[in-house]
């Protein structure tokens, strides 16, 4: 019953909040509109036959979010320093290949958002057949270090959450 009404609970909750914020009020009419949207729109997703997101460990979500926040702050600082011209000589940018063990589509999407949202790294191409990710790094010091960082810092936690 609950499954039939809410095939995608996270999506429904997000739509509810978005609609309330767009109307900018918590009066009954806005809540009614938000509820209608939250109930009706996920039904459309049935036609798309999308996989439901299953979050295995909510604690890992929080720890990943905190980690990403810190990394975004730190890499913003690092890229600002590069633009302001410190260490202009020895800096080298380039592509690296990262072999990923992650297979879940949502987990890969989250990883793409994380890597691109931290300035200094950019997700370029992912080959789902070989699981190889092509990444561009602005400040490339040691390729193996980057691969190690991504695999231990993000991939392990994403696997905890999604797989």
């Amino acid at each position: 019953m609950i499954r039939a009404l809410f095939p995608h609970p996270v999506l429904a909750l997000g739509l509810f909040a978005t609609s309330l914020l767009m109307s900018g009020s918590v009066e009954p009419p806005s809540i009614a509109l938000a509820a209608v949207l939250a109930l009706a729109t996920p039904q459309v997703m049935r036609a798309l036959d999308a996989q439901t997101i299953r979050i295995r460990s909510p604690k890992a979500v929080l720890s990943l979010a905190g980690l990403v926040l810190v990394d975004v702050l730190r890499s913003n600082w690092a890229v600002s320093a590069i633009i302001l011209g410190r260490r202009k000589q020895q800096r080298r940018s380039g592509f690296i290949h990262v072999p990923l063990d992650l297979k879940d589509r949502y987990a890969l999407a989250v990883l793409a958002v994380i890597l691109t949202a931290t300035p200094g790294t950019l997700w370029v191409e992912y080959d789902s057949a070989t699981g190889r990710l092509l990444l561009h790094v602005l400040d490339l010091i040691e390729e193996d270090e980057w691969v190690h960082l991504i695999k231990t810092r993000y991939e392990r936690r994403l696997m905890e959450i999604f797989e």
Binding site: V72, N76, V79, A117, L122, L138
Partner: peptide
Amino acid sequence: GLSFLGAVGLCSFRTFYERVHAPTLGATL
């Protein structure tokens, strides 16, 4: 200020792949 720094980076980096990183400053923090 951060967004401005990103735009400065957009103009000062030499290759396209370096320039892609610059506007993320303004788009994130």
